[in-house]
């Protein structure tokens, strides 16, 4: 039974290792949402290590003490039906543990679903993140720009990612900034995150969506607000606009590298009806007639106008978007030159 003893030691040391270890992505948060999650995880590991310890101690003690080779030959184990008090203990204590964890879960879940504390009064940057086989499109409706397979965000500003998919369900996950959420074809999910440290963070699709899933990685670059606006300006002036034909051919291409455009696909290919709370009955209707007609009238059903902030977004579905004249260069902007580090 030495094996399991050493297993216990191994596990405990790993637990200790975890808490001090920064090489583990999930436990190396760079934003408030991921930090909440990291704390929750460490807290639960600590609780569970306690449970494991109790079980393992009893286990080792009983196995050592009551092995047949140690007892006398004529030893006859007693008949035991059970013990009310003991059983009450191992029902009550787990219930308490579960209750504590439930409170932690409910609190932390609602915390990470909302805009991070301390950032509520800032106007969030809305980015539509949509997936298609097998790439990510990031549309910045306010800036009127769009990128493929990379996401640049300003640091210390709440980001509201609106997720949807042009095909199979995908899941957008930037472990160092926030937990993941699904992108699906008939509704928009919202993922709130903030980066409070400049740097480059790996994001990926974590939900299997076919042959190219493993390649659906993207870089998230958290840059200073100044560098961010500079980058936006540069995109607007140097990148080409994205028209419907090009977007269609982009969707049809399986793998592309990074792309940058000075307009978004939302104008001609709007996001699906925005019903993030799909468990409610109301969203059951987003396939019906009226809804589809509405879609045609209001091609961008959920744009920043709906937020409580007064800032006027510069995307208006009824007007052509301001487009940069210098779009013929059609360049994929060299991303590394804007590295925030």
């Amino acid at each position: 039974m030495k094996k399991r003893g050493s297993l216990l030691v191994l596990f405990m040391s790993l637990v200790l290792l975890l808490s001090g270890c920064s090489s583990i992505t999930v436990l190396d948060p760079k934003g408030p949402a991921a930090r909440t999650l990291s704390d929750t995880i460490l807290f639960s590991i600590a609780m569970m290590a306690g449970v494991l310890l109790v079980v393992y101690v009893l286990y080792v003690v009983f196995l050592v003490k009551y092995r047949g080779s140690k007892t006398k030959d004529d030893y006859m184990p007693p008949h035991e039906e059970g013990n009310k008090w003991l059983e009450a203990i191992w029902i009550t204590i787990p219930i308490i543990i579960v209750a504590v964890l439930s409170v932690v879960t409910v609190q932390s879940t609602s915390t990470v679903e909302k805009v991070a504390a301390g950032y509520e009064d800032q106007k969030p940057l809305v980015v539509y993140a949509s997936s298609s086989n097998w790439k990510w499109h990031f549309s910045y409706p306010e800036e009127g720009i769009e990128t493929v397979n990379y996401l640049n965000i300003p640091v210390n500003r709440p980001i509201e990612l609106r997720l949807y998919s042009f095909g199979p369900i995908t899941s957008l996950w930037i472990p160092q900034l926030a937990g993941q959420k699904y992108a699906m074809s008939d509704m928009v999910n919202t993922l709130n995150l903030v980066a409070d440290e400049q740097g480059s963070y790996l994001g990926r699709n974590s939900n299997f969506s076919g042959q190219g899933t493993a390649h659906m990685e993207f870089e998230t670059l958290a840059m200073s607000p100044g560098a961010y606006s500079e980058w936006v300006e540069e995109v607007k002036t140097t990148a080409s606009a994205l028209d419907e034909t090009e977007f269609k051919s982009l969707l049809a291409t399986s793998y592309v590298g990074r792309k940058t455009f000075s307009s978004t696909h939302l104008t001609f290919s709007p996001a699906p009806g925005d019903h993030s709370d799909h468990m409610k009955h109301t969203d059951m209707e987003n396939g019906n007639k009226e809804h589809q007609e509405n879609k045609a009238e209001h091609p961008v059903p959920a744009n920043p106008e709906e937020t409580k902030f007064d800032a006027v977004p510069n995307v208006n579905p009824n007007e052509p978007l301001p487009q940069s004249p210098a779009e013929d260069s059609n360049s994929d902007i060299d991303h590394t030159s804007h590295d925030g580090k």
């Binding site: 059951m284 987003n286 396939g287 019906n288 007639k289 589809q292």
Partner: peptide, 11 residues
Amino acid sequence: VLVNRYATGPN
């Protein structure tokens, strides 16, 4: 769940 999702068809 699907009763109101009649798209362009009849209800």
